[in-house]
Design a protein around this nucleic acid. Structure first.
Lengths: 403, 403
DNA sequence: TGGTATTAGTTCGCGCCGCGAATTAAATAC
DNA sequence: GTATTTAATTCGCGGCGCGAACTAATACCA
């Protein structure tokens, strides 16, 4: 039961009921397509007459279309409805430290065209390079009306100003990406943290996580980030920085972290941490020089490959990483009791080895009656990028703002 | 933006708009009373005509009443509306290990009558003792229609079965309190964990926390519990056990906890922990015998009094406790970025000493841009008990289930 | 003292919406 | 060829919010 926010509520008008039911029907079409009006009525609990009117409206607005006729054992054949993939395009942009990928997606979140570029270190230059590529993507399917642009990035966006306030791995700070991008493309732009994007991707399009009430996504790369979906809703915190469990203390008085604290979770369980462990293992006496981001990422790829080839020290580094991942996940299970936790990151390639260790560690260190599933994300679904599509589509498919 | 839950959604009917606007108006009356219809129209954005109809309905249903006329610099005098305190009573029951308190409250969550009893160790006997006292409370103001019974207890309630699944400090387990209480009183009964109750109390009636989007309540007594309000909504997790950060690991391989893990937060920051620290300090060599719950609670009272009188070791025990409270709160600030954290428990009596330590520790160990306020709860508001009133009232004052 | 301006609250017709019964459409079974 | 079954549409009804018009009550001012 939600408390009504008296500083920011939405009164109901005569169109509110239609708005609610239209969204319900649109969602039902998406999940059950192809589907007849009669089935929609059964699934929604609405009268067939009401569904007919709503369907007519959705067809008129080109959200859905009528396809072939279906089959029934007896009686008139239903006219099957499905999402109109020819109507809407969404641009998704996934910014990562080295490479930025962008794509054009349809209403089913299928990618129709993709592109990528090296992420420049200067955010202004980035906008300049991005805009023509966005235009080119939209040009790939000119018949589609572009609904908006979703952006996922390794940083945090201030809820009020929509400015990027913190992105250490990009080296950007206090930059307004939204305004210039909106001006240049004349499209609404939604920014979101990468972990949050992944979480949206999972509950909106995920095979196993779709529709779950409580889901946590843990993104493991240079650092660790969390995307929290609680009560079907993204948790952003008061300013938009919720999810920074990567900088929660795991080991009191532990290793010094760039954030200024000591013993942060990501100092022990990130890709970087695994590399550090491995480096120490193979050359315990020689102190390593500070490596750049590029070297780190390549190295984790390398570490994974070594482990796949059976390198004992590489395997051990990953096992260590898995143990610490479990130690950090355990309090999330105790404290938030989610239905599912999804791990996103290169480390999932070694899931056969690390999965059981994470699960066992979580089991030993958590306290809950909840049967939280712990699963790796399928990188082929490109959750960071696909989440940006969810970000834009939720404006049409999400629950309406009411009361 | 919330995702629509296709396994449990609510279609809109022709009455949905009225339901939404009625709840908005009811909330506005509560927060602005006494208030005129014209002001309600201004605050809600609804037409005056609509507000008039809704007000008439609310008066007919005896939720609100018309009071004296107000004053305006010019023009007709408004008829002021306010909540009808003579209509509805709510029974609140706060179960604690030693004493159970119960009260009858009005719509403003003011207590009209109170009672208390020793908490029996047998839950069946508890129900038998409770029912006549509930009847007696209702008899104190027979003109009130009792809307329901809210119960707060130190344990967790399974979301699906509504059974009490875990209450170590009561010694109860897998007991159904709801059904027998509902049968005996013919009133709807809502059960909730004590920390969650406190959280509801704070956002519904709290002077500082009312209406906040993200709030965490940390209850500190024999153990530590957390009540999480995120996006204006109680977080219960998949089974109802969310909030058990007290059993999150604070110190790896630390003290053994009754839950089976080691180093749980509540082993270092609970009342029990402070007593253990004090006992060790005054008799470091002699091992203490296992104390009962009763002795522990009395002892923490004693410890507080000693500290108030300036006993150095007692003060140091509380400071130690405060430091560990801060260490446990820090990851909640990093990870959930709430607007406010409220501490509930006897320890707040020593806030002048412990408050600054908690705040400083949190500041040093957390990572956020959020300016999370950290405040002690005012025990005079009886948050555990008052939260049970919110639990019942939210059915009428909360946002309606929609989409 | 009576008109004017101002504010509160009500009345009423309109259009949007979902409901549900009746109707039309199209298929199969016998 | 008729009955049966299922799909989809049509249409009148009642609930609801809107907004214009109207009534009520008060202060100000000439």
């Amino acid at each position: 039961m939600r408390r009504i926010d008296l500083s920011n509520f939405q009164k109901a008008t005569s169109e509110t009921a239609r708005d609610i039911n239209r969204r319900i029907v649109l969602n039902l079409v998406r999940t059950h397509q192809p589907v007849s009006r009669a089935d929609l009525a059964r699934h929604s609990g609405l009268q067939r007459s009401t569904v007919s009117v709503i369907a007519e409206q959705l067809i008129r607005d080109r959200w859905i279309t009528e396809g072939a006729n279906g089959h029934t054992p007896r009686g008139r054949r239903p006219q099957l409805l499905h999402l109109n993939k020819e109507r809407v395009g969404i641009i998704g942009i996934n910014i990562r430290p080295i490479t930025t990928t962008l794509a054009l997606a349809d209403l089913d979140a299928n990618f129709l065209a993709q592109d990528s570029l090296a992420t420049p270190s200067d955010p202004k230059q980035f906008v300049a390079e991005l805009v023509p590529r966005v235009r080119k993507l939209m040009g790939a399917r000119p018949e589609l009306t572009c609904e908006g642009i979703g952006v996922s990035l390794p940083g945090r966006i201030d809820l009020a100003s929509k400015q990027l306030v913190f992105a250490p791995n990009l080296g950007w700070k206090d930059f307004d990406l939204k305004t210039p991008l909106e001006k240049a493309t004349r499209l609404p732009v939604e920014l979101e943290n990468a972990a949050n994007s992944c979480a949206l991707s999972e509950i909106c399009f995920g095979r196993r996580a779709e529709g779950l009430r409580n889901l946590i996504v843990v993104t493991v790369s240079e650092g660790i980030g969390c995307g929290l979906i609680l009560n079907h809703q993204l948790v952003q915190g008061s300013t938009g920085t919720a999810g920074e469990f990567g900088h929660a203390t795991l080991i009191q008085d532990g290793l010094e972290c760039s954030c200024g604290n000591r013993g942060c979770w990501e100092m022990y369980a990130s890709n970087t941490a695994a590399i550090r462990h491995y480096t120490k293992a193979i050359a315990p006496t020689r102190p390593t020089k500070r490596t750049t981001e590029t070297e780190k990422t390549i190295s984790f790829e390398h570490l994974l490959r070594l482990a796949e080839q059976g390198d004992a020290k590489a395997v051990e580094s990953l096992q260590q990483m898995a143990k610490y991942l479990g130690l950090g996940i355990a309090p999330l299970v105790s404290g938030l009791a989610p239905d599912m936790i999804v791990i996103v990151g290169e480390v999932t390639r070694a899931w056969r080895d690390v999965g059981p260790i994470i699960k066992e560690t979580v089991k030993q260190h958590s306290f809950t009656r909840a049967e939280t599933q712990l699963v790796p994300s399928d990188p082929i679904t490109q959750p960071r990028l696909r989440g940006t599509i969810a970000l834009v589509l939720l404006k049409h498919f999400g629950a309406p703002a009411v009361a």
